[in-house]
């Protein structure tokens, strides 16, 4: 187990023409499950590959267990990595695949066998040891890749979208397994994904990355409820946070924060009212999404399925949002502003 830290790490390609990672500072906690979340091309995989030693940072430092590892090749960093494609060795059977890192470390045959059996046992693949990778399903391959990562007893696990090749159903159970597995092993894990559900469900903390920089790092709750900027606000949550322009500010609130009647009666000091012109309704069983227009902006409201909201196009309804649920962003920079609810209320003009 170890702490992974990056200090002002930068990666440029094509002689500085393309900056993929810009001055990223991240520090994990020992035994933490840290998720790097961001859209494709945001630099998250490059960051992971630099930590793994597969790419050299243009500048900055990488520390694993308080040691600068910039100059160390991947094999000397005591890490294990699981690639998106699982990267199983196609010419070896499952046993050979799992034992591969042990062979590299010159561990004797008996110990190799003991550790392979142990890892295969944990992941429930003992019956597959003699198969070749091509004879395995996606889920089984993923477990073999995890078992191979496990036998080394690494300081850090690096996982690059290991669930993206699984179908939706399998993914949900794999998410659960992976999280339990990490909890049991207690090894510091850095997990790259573009899937917010994975990130929210699995991470102790999430680092939201966009355009090569960390936009925000925090617990899933922090990130969801107190986004640091409009990117984080709209990247997380489905549907994303509503953003309504008011002067040089953007007022943000989650679709589920709409109420039909304000808590404790109509009181403009504790809540804000909006007139929503309904456009379309999406019925989802236990709830419904009402798509509409609010002060000229596309807005979504998540309501109980039986809520009395006009479904027909053009129907108008007044909705309320508690002041406590409102977030204010600077319109220019998109950055979060700390504003008193009163300011919001006076700025409403309605």
């Amino acid at each position: 187990m170890a702490i992974v830290e990056t200090r002002k790490i930068t990666k440029e390609f094509d002689g500085g023409a393309v900056k993929v990672v810009k001055d990223i500072d991240i520090k994990t906690v020992d035994g933490e499950f840290l998720v790097l979340l961001g859209p494709s091309g945001c630099g998250k995989t490059t960051l992971l590959r630099m930590i793994g030693g597969l790419e050299h940072p243009t500048s900055g430092q990488i520390l694993i267990a308080d040691q600068v590892v910039n100059h160390l090749p991947p094999r000397a960093r005591q890490i294990a990595m699981v690639f998106q494609s699982y990267a199983l060795y196609p010419h070896m059977n499952v046993k050979g695949n799992i034992a591969f890192p042990l062979k590299a470390a010159n561990i004797d045959k008996e110990e190799q066998k003991r550790r392979v059996d142990w890892a295969a046992g944990i992941l429930g693949i003992d019956h597959l040891l003699d198969r070749k990778p091509r004879q395995l399903s996606g889920g089984q391959r993923q477990r073999v890749a995890l078992a191979r990562a496990l036998v080394r007893e690494p300081n850090v696990f690096l996982l690059d979208e290991p669930l993206s090749n699984l179908d939706a159903q399998r993914r949900a159970s794999a998410r659960d397994e992976l999280q339990r597995f990490q909890h049991e092993i207690g090894t510091t894990t850095i997990y790259v994904t573009h899937d917010q559900v994975e990130a929210m469900g699995m991470g102790h903390r999430i680092a939201v990355i966009e355009g090569g920089t960390v936009r925000q790092i925090g617990t899933p709750r922090d990130i969801y409820e107190d986004p640091a900027d409009t990117f984080v606000a709209t990247f997380l949550g489905s549907p994303p946070m509503n953003l309504i322009p008011r002067g040089d500010e953007l007022i943000g609130f989650r679709p589920e924060n709409f109420h039909l009647a304000p808590d404790g009666g109509v009181d403009s000091s504790t809540s804000l009212s909006f007139k929503l012109t309904s456009i379309r309704e999406e019925y989802l069983g236990s709830e419904k999404l009402v798509y509409g227009e609010l002060e000229g902006e596309r807005t979504v409201a998540r309501m109980a399925a039986n809520a009395d909201v006009p479904a027909a196009e053009g129907g108008e309804v007044t909705l309320f949002v508690d002041n406590a649920d409102l977030r204010v962003f600077d319109r220019e920079s998109g950055l979060r502003k700390e504003s008193a609810p009163a300011t919001i209320a006076t700025g409403s003009g309605s």
Partner: peptide, 18 residues
């Protein structure tokens, strides 16, 4: 030949040549 299996081998403990 997928790049990853070579990188995986490098992470698993071998030099590039290995």
């Amino acid at each position: 030949v997928p790049w990853e299996i070579e990188e995986q081998a490098m992470i698993d403990g071998y030099s590039r040549i290995g």
